[in-house]
């Protein structure tokens, strides 16, 4: 069971959140190339290990929470707001 520390609401159950995917993907500028938009829409790193991702607190404050979570162990390393820079744990890729 994931328990996610929402920066606004505190430690909450996974069931309150809706997953929203890879948070390292950044929308290109409007005049970016087709290739950049293709990669933005479809290409994902899909790492085995630490993954920075969005969880939308739909059953709570409705803020988007950034989460660093391990896709192999389901361990959560850090959470923050959308503009927080969350480094991956040291010693891991």
């Amino acid at each position: 069971m994931h328990r996610i520390n929402c920066p606004w609401c505190g430690l909450r159950d996974e069931a309150e959140f809706q997953y929203q995917g890879d948070a390292t993907v950044v929308r290109p500028e409007p005049d970016a190339s087709e290739e950049e938009f293709f990669r933005y829409a479809y290409i994902r790193d899909n790492p085995k290990g630490w993954h920075t991702e969005w969880w939308h607190h739909t059953g709570g404050c409705r803020q988007w929470v950034k989460v660093v979570r391990n896709t192999l162990t389901h361990e959560i390393h850090a959470t923050g707001g959308p503009h927080d820079d969350l480094p991956l744990p040291e010693g891991d890729k």
């Binding site: 069971m1 994931h2 159950d13 996974e14 069931a15 809706q18 997953y19 890879d22 899909n46 085995k48 993954h51 991702e53 979570r69 896709t71 192999l72 162990t73 389901h74």
Partner: peptide, 12 residues
């Protein structure tokens, strides 16, 4: 509903 390589799921 979340990225995972663990061959087990969660209670919700």
């Amino acid at each position: 509903g979340y990225n995972s390589y663990a061959q087990r799921g969660n209670l919700p």
